[in-house]
């Protein structure tokens, strides 16, 4: 399959790709550190994944197989549009199957299937600065990162516990990378945080509006912040998936009527469909 000849391969011009590539290499060399880059305007609005798309465009090659997910789903507007975009401007093969993908661009989830050394996970990040709500001045947060001075975040977690009895962040839960940099994992559910720890795949983060790129190399320590007497506890709805019965996957709550009816289904559509078809195949064999 070839790409639309009206565009350079993968949309971006070569100067921009080189700039992003240099940024990516430094981001990998300093795990968790936010590296500024000259984010370009993309043919979609900020907040729709302009950072992730630029990272993907800078790494993507003709032999890659691309998967794009939005909150775990392959079939939502954002995921479908980005997949079609790269199919058109780079002519790459796309897939919804996690094990077949070499590059996975994600908005706010990590797939349930364990990722491998042959894969790269690209996160779309709205706000890369984990201290943003506590200290709005970037000049100050830069200094705090330089000094590894993260007391402010610990105070915030402590105040959560004092007020609510637990840390009141169910998503975008701050992590320490290699015990040096405080990092925003992007708004993934805290449930996904443990998957980042020593993941065999390379993890790249792109924030288009905020013009920052950061990375977590493979097998790098990623620790969710907590206290000895209040250890990190990822939250999961206490129910099996209605469609596939999974008791370990992250669930979405779906309201089904206006009388309080609801169901829980896997947020990772590929994982759920895979389990359903395996179960159907087993059912046929048994029959």
């Amino acid at each position: 399959m070839s790409h639309d000849p009206g565009y350079n391969f993968a949309y971006l011009d070569e100067n921009t790709k080189r700039m992003i590539r240099r940024t990516l290499l430094k981001a990998v060399a300093i795990p968790g550190h936010q590296v500024p880059f000259g984010a370009r305007e993309m043919p979609l609005p900020y907040g729709w994944g302009t950072g992730g798309i630029q990272v993907t465009a800078a790494i993507l090659g003709p032999r890659d197989v691309l998967k794009v997910i939005d909150q775990g789903a392959d079939d939502t507007t954002n995921a479908v549009s980005i997949r079609r975009f790269f199919n058109r401007v780079a002519g790459v093969a796309t897939t919804t199957r996690t094990p077949e993908a070499t590059v996975i661009q994600t908005r706010h989830r990590i797939p349930e299937a364990t990722l491998t050394e042959q894969q790269i996970l690209v996160y779309q990040v709205p706000m890369p600065e984990p201290l943003f709500r506590l200290e709005p001045r970037l000049t100050e947060t830069r200094r705090m990162h330089a000094l590894a001075d993260y007391g402010l975040m610990h105070v915030k977690l402590y105040e959560d516990i004092a007020r609510h009895g637990h840390v009141a962040s169910a998503y975008n839960y701050p992590v320490m990378v290699q015990e040096r940099y405080l990092m925003s994992p992007s708004p993934i559910p805290a449930f996904d945080n443990p998957k980042m720890h020593r993941m065999p795949a390379l993890q790249l983060f792109g924030a288009g509006r905020e013009k920052k790129i950061y990375a977590v190399p493979p097998y790098t320590a990623v620790r969710s912040l907590d206290f000895e007497d209040h250890p990190f506890r990822p939250h999961r709805a206490d129910a099996p998936c209605t469609l596939c019965g999974s008791r370990t996957s992250y669930l979405d709550e779906v309201v089904t009527d206006d009388r309080g009816g609801r169901m829980f289904v896997c947020s990772d559509t590929d994982y759920c469909e895979d389990r359903q078809s395996t179960q159907a195949a087993r059912g046929e064999q048994a029959a």
């Binding site: 391969f9 790709k17 290499l25 090659g61």
Partner: peptide, 18 residues
Amino acid sequence: PVLDAQDCFRAVLEAMSR
């Protein structure tokens, strides 16, 4: 120029990541 640079970059990225 476009494809070879991409190919080489992925090798460098892989080398830097591992």
